[in-house]
Every structure is written in C-alpha cells, then in structure tokens.
Nucleic acid binder design. Structure first.
Lengths: 200, 200
DNA sequence: AAATTAATTGAATATTCATTTAATTATTCG
DNA sequence: CGAATAATTAAATGAATATTCAATTAATTT
C-alpha cells in the first residue's frame, strides 16, 4: 500500500484563493479557468484535474467564502461569559467594519445570485444562515434569561437581526464614502439594541 | 424630410422583456444574444442592431428592472391624504407579497453584483435608492409633523427601512415555503412601526 | 536505483460567444 | 408607383470557453 503525501487539498485551496481574486477583480463572467490558471502560472487543465468540472469548483468556492463568516465572531466570543458582553461583541462585529471587509460584495452577491438556480449552492447558503440563526437564538435566549434584554421571541428577533445585517451589507455596497456607512452601521446597531430592549 | 414611425423603442422593450425572461430561467451566464434571439424567433444580429453592444443592453435591462420598483407604490399612494395611512400603504407594500413578485431575486441580485464593476449600473442603483430615500424621508417628515410617529431623524430612519427591506428581500430568497416569509414580513413591519414609535 | 504514483503540461476538441459587414425584405413617404 | 428608409436576415469572423486524452515531469516508496 503505497502512501503518498496528500497535497491535493492544499493545491485546491490555492486555486480557490486565486479564483476568488479573479472573481473580485474581473467579475464572475470573466473568471474563466484560463484566467485563473494564467494568474497562477499553471495550465488550465490542472484545475480540471483537481475539480473535474468548473461547476463543482464554483460550488467549493461558495463554501470557501461562506466559511469565512462562520469563522468570524465565534473565536471572538471565546472566553467571554457575560451574555450582555457576548451580544455586544456580536453586534459590533456584524455592524462594524470587520464584517464588511471579510468578503467582497461583488463576489458575495454573484454567488448568492447563483443560489437561485443551483441547488447545491442554495443549500450552502441555507446551512450558513441556519447556523447563524442558531447561534443568535442561543445568545438571545441567554440574554432574556439573565434579563439583559426584554422578553420576546428569540427566533423572530434572530431573523430580524439577520435581515437587517444583510440589508446593511447590501445597501453599503452602493455607498461611496465609508464615513457614511460606518455611521449607518452604528445607528443600526443602536436600533437593534432598542428593539431588543437593551439599555443603550 | 421623410418621417418614419419610430418603432425602435417598442422593439427594444420587447427584447429587454425576453432578455429578462432568459435571465430568470437560465441565469446571467447563459443569457446570451443567441438564446434571447432564438426565444424571440429573430436573428441575434438584430439585437446588436438595436443596442449596438451587449454591455449597453445589460445597462438598459438594469434600468428596466429598477423602474418596476419606482412604479410600485407611487401609484398606490395616489389620493391618500392621511400621513398615517400613506405610511401604512408603503410598509404593507414593501414588506408584503407584491413587492417580492415584482422582480425575480436571481435576476435582481445578478444585476446588483454587476454594479461593483460597472459604473453605469452602479449609478442606476444609486439613483433608485436616492429616489426611494427621498420619498421615505418626505413621508416620515410628514408623520413626525402630524404626530403619527415619534420624533427622530427621518433620514436615518429611511436608511434603516431600506436596509431592512432589502435584507428581507435577500433573506427571503433562501426560504423554501412562503408561509415563513410572509410571517417574517409581517413581523418586520411591526418592528419598523415600533422603532418609528407608531402605535401598533 | 527502480518502480509506482502523483502533479503537471501539451495539444486538440467542439461549442459558444459577441460582433461585423453585406444583402434582403418590409414599410412608409412623396 | 417609386424612392427612401427602416427592419431584418445571412453568412462569416475570431476570440474565448470548458473539457478531453495522451504525454511528460516530479515526487515518493520499496
């Protein structure tokens, strides 16, 4: 049984990173295998060798992109016990500037648009929001129990927060100067706190 | 001076309608001139004849799509004097089912994603939200003056409403059954009213 | 060092794409 | 009707596309 080093996952990730970059710089319609390969100084057929088809590669790109969000505020919450503090960290993260710089909006919404016709991509997105929702519900529940926020339906509140944060992401993509959208982010955060019944 | 009937605008609109349909059914990456033409039973070069280039056609498609929103609740407000009633009509429209069926989400967000790399498309979107914001600010101002809603910054409140409605549009695109997103729409509407200080 | 497996390239494929130019058919005007 | 103009088609173009299969180079194991 000949055992070889498994460098395939590393190479695949490299390709995905370059795919993402081309996507950001040139748009989905111009993000061809040839361009990705040329940017890496490799041959296009090597990409096919690793992903077998472009559609599968796009599917993996979506997961690659969505994982970034998963990995954002979860580490930030490590070690924080106080529910109020935890919720603040989440809101600051989501309506702050870090969240926005995680993924390019053009790339993100291009992928999102694909979810309307590609079942696998659709499920990736659904899974991500299902997880996010679960996290939020859990945090909100704890805050209600501790009296940090007013009593209410944590699931609906979670949906409200998700809607608002994605709408913020969307709307911000059309703003020109960052002062404006930083200000908006701060304002939306306060609105959420008011809706939750958290003293500001 | 030979005067001819100007049927070009009509034909262009027909082409845009078919472009939109192909976009919905096949996605942006497959919405080629050949497919649009074949669906119409015409020759691809005829499309070029009217739009001269595909990029320009896409630009006009975006305007065509965005106009639908402009034409939504403005007619609905005709004849309604009462500020409270006007605001209710707007919120019902925006968080209701009509708004969603106006434009296919896949088509809409595909176009939105283009705005990150295409200046003309970007400006079309910006213009649309500028107009929407102006309308909302005006309505909110009237409601504040009449004591229908609590005193507050109408511009920030408008941005809040726009963020939430677009986030709702986005999030809804991932939901499977319409009961859920109708319920969410109703809930978000109540949240907005609470934030505005409108008695529910 | 030889053999085996993985990584990568090369060249060829058929398809699809937007666009051009010239020719043809319809329509409208005088 | 006849001339002018618009609407439409035909055919050809070259570039770009994803994907194929076979060949080659590099790495690892025995």
């Amino acid at each position: 049984m000949a055992r070889k080093k498994d460098r395939a996952p590393v190479r695949k990730r490299e390709i995905l990173e370059n795919f993402y970059q081309v996507l950001v710089e040139e748009g989905l319609e111009r993000a061809s295998l040839a361009r990705i390969a040329s940017r890496m100084g490799i041959h296009p057929s090597l990409i096919i060798h690793y992903f077998s088809t472009k559609e599968k590669m796009v599917g993996e790109l979506v997961q690659y992109i969505l994982e970034r969000y998963q990995e954002t505020f979860l580490p930030q919450l490590d070690g924080i016990k106080n529910p109020r503090e935890r919720l603040s960290v989440i809101l600051n993260s989501v309506f702050g500037t870090e969240w926005m710089s995680l993924v390019d909006g053009g790339a993100f919404f291009s992928c999102y648009a694909l979810s309307y016709r590609n079942q696998q991509i659709r499920e990736s997105f659904q899974k991500m929001y299902y997880t996010l929702r679960e996290i939020l519900v859990e945090e909100l529940r704890n805050c209600i129990r501790e009296g940090v926020i007013r009593d209410g339906d944590p699931e609906k509140l979670a949906d409200f927060i998700i809607s608002l944060l994605e709408g913020y992401d969307y709307y911000r993509g059309l703003m020109e100067d960052c002062e404006n959208f930083e200000e908006l982010g701060g304002y939306l955060k306060e609105v959420v706190k008011r809706v939750l019944g958290m003293e500001v």
